[in-house]
Simulated assay, not measured.
Amino acid sequence: MTKEAWDDLRLLLQPIELKRNDYLIREGARVHDCFLLIDGVVRVFYNKEGNEYNKTFFVPGMFPTPLTALLSESPAAISFQALLPCRLFKFSYSGFRNLFDRHRCLEKLLLRILEEIWIKKERHDINMVTNDATTNYLIFRETYPDLENQIPQYHIASYLGITPIQLSRIRAQLAHSK
């Protein structure tokens, strides 16, 4: 990124903070901004008949933004909630896109970010249907080092599509096999 592009982008950045359990985005909200997570953890979940299902987690350096809602200008189908206190930067998506004509490197940056998100999502989706729960738990630990020590276990179980009891058994079995 060029210094000029960074100077223009920096003008769009607005710092925001969330307390634990605060919502960044609620299901049904209209989204016009992107977010960059500086500190904390954000979970993404959907609600079906009163049950919450964790879809993913965002850790520092990631962009917890409901892309489908943002790009299609439709209401968010998922919610984003802080699991720990969070510091983020918020910036207007249209303002960011308006910088593309002057700074092609920002357009390339967006493309690279979207490519990384797509790769991560596709790998996760394939893993969830082809692996057993133990393998997916090990992948979770590799993908999110130390996150299991920071958030409640039931959030991890939900992400893995298993019950908290099943997760406890997997953890005990892995600890015993060491």
Rank of each mutant, 00 (worst) to 15 (best):
M1E: 03
T2C: 01
K3W: 02
K3C: 01
A5H: 00
L9P: 06
R10W: 12
L12E: 00
Q14D: 09
I16Y: 07
L18C: 03
D22F: 05
D22N: 05
D22L: 03
I25Q: 01
R26W: 05
A29G: 08
R30I: 15
D33E: 09
D33N: 08
C34Q: 02
L36H: 05
L36F: 13
L36S: 01
L37V: 06
I38W: 10
V41F: 09
R43T: 08
V44T: 07
V44K: 01
V44W: 06
N47V: 14
K48G: 11
K48T: 12
E52L: 07
N54A: 00
T56R: 14
F58N: 01
V59T: 10
G61K: 04
M62E: 15
P66L: 01
A69D: 02
L70G: 06
E73N: 12
P75G: 03
I78C: 15
I78P: 15
Q81P: 00
A82V: 02
A82W: 01
L84C: 04
L88E: 00
L88H: 00
S92M: 00
S94H: 12
G95D: 07
F96S: 00
R97P: 02
R97N: 10
N98V: 06
N98D: 11
L99K: 13
F100W: 05
D101P: 10
R102G: 02
L106G: 05
L106A: 07
K108Q: 11
L109W: 14
L109F: 11
L111H: 12
E116Q: 12
I119H: 06
I119D: 02
E122W: 11
H124N: 12
M128T: 13
M128F: 14
V129S: 09
V129W: 14
T130Y: 11
N131F: 13
L138R: 15
R141C: 14
R141D: 04
Y144C: 08
P145C: 05
D146Q: 14
L147N: 05
N149P: 03
Q150E: 07
I151V: 15
I151Y: 03
P152C: 04
P152W: 03
Y154W: 11
H155V: 09
L160C: 04
L160K: 06
T163M: 04
P164M: 01
P164V: 02
Q166I: 13
S168V: 08
R169A: 15
Q173A: 13
L174H: 09
S177W: 10
K178T: 12
